[in-house]
Design a binder for these strands. Structure first.
Lengths: 132, 132
DNA sequence: TCAAACCCTCACATAGATGTGAAGGTCAAC
DNA sequence: GTTGACCTTCACATCTATGTGAGGGTTTGA
């Protein structure tokens, strides 16, 4: 515990903290979703902020977004947003708008279906009371 | 055009109406998501209500649900809901509740990220006005 | 009767996310 | 110094949703 660069972690700890197999952490790196540093011995060295980032990646993957798109939208999520738009080409912006709209569609579809499931469950609870 | 069973369609028409490859319509049948009748010559014969069903299936697949789960929740979506809960075992209900919760999580995750993308786009629009 | 446009089944291929394990280097503790 | 728990890369396997096409039957209309 010195003053400067404390608090980093290796792959095992990140894996535990995010409940994500090491294999996938390496895969996300290969897909350019995260860019860990390397220690002098070659071990990956993760900034603790990557915990949230990995959870976000997993959530998006779970929601059906492919890594290619996640790669595009991740820069939108960086904390000091003002710093990070170096080269926002019109094509990139159009792509982001399109993806935002598709996300809205997914949300609508999921909401509709989730509500239908909820209604179904309520109907069963009401019209089909447990026999105990 | 007789009196009784009009309005059915073969795979080509359903494919066009739902913008879904024939291959996938057969796949959804194989996965037991839809059950078309068969004409005497062996051709599949689809009820027009399957148009909506197929669109729903595609939406859910696109939202990251595997066919196995879609198969579970589809019965919840049938129109005369009161008719269709023949054997709602407690295990099935628990599974449905669990999946409903996971859908809620997905919705939350997607919403968060979509909002972040929106904010990013607005920030770019404001702080980075187009040079024309 | 022939062609075009449908339909069928079967089967192999692909792409993306993930599982699994081999072969081997590093490091801390005993 | 040896062991055990880490880490590395590489590579092959798996599962799911898809693409693609071969080989062949049916229906309709010229």
């Amino acid at each position: 515990m010195a003053k400067g660069e404390v608090d980093h972690m290796r792959i095992g700890e990140l894996s535990e903290r995010t409940d994500t197999p090491r294999r996938l952490l390496r895969y996300y790196e290969e897909q350019d979703l995260i860019r860990p540093r390397r220690l002098p011995n070659g071990y990956r060295d993760y900034d603790p902020r990557l915990v949230d980032r990995v959870l976000q990646i997993r959530g998006l993957l779970d929601a059906g977004l492919p890594t290619r798109l996640i790669r595009q939208i991740l820069p939108c999520l960086d904390q000091p947003r003002s710093i990070h738009f170096p080269d926002a080409t019109p094509e990139m912006l159009a792509l982001l708008e399109h993806e935002r709209d598709r996300m809205t569609q997914r949300i609508a579809c999921l909401s509709r279906n989730r509500d239908a499931v909820s209604e179904y469950l309520e109907a069963v609870r009401d019209g089909n009371p447990p026999r105990e």
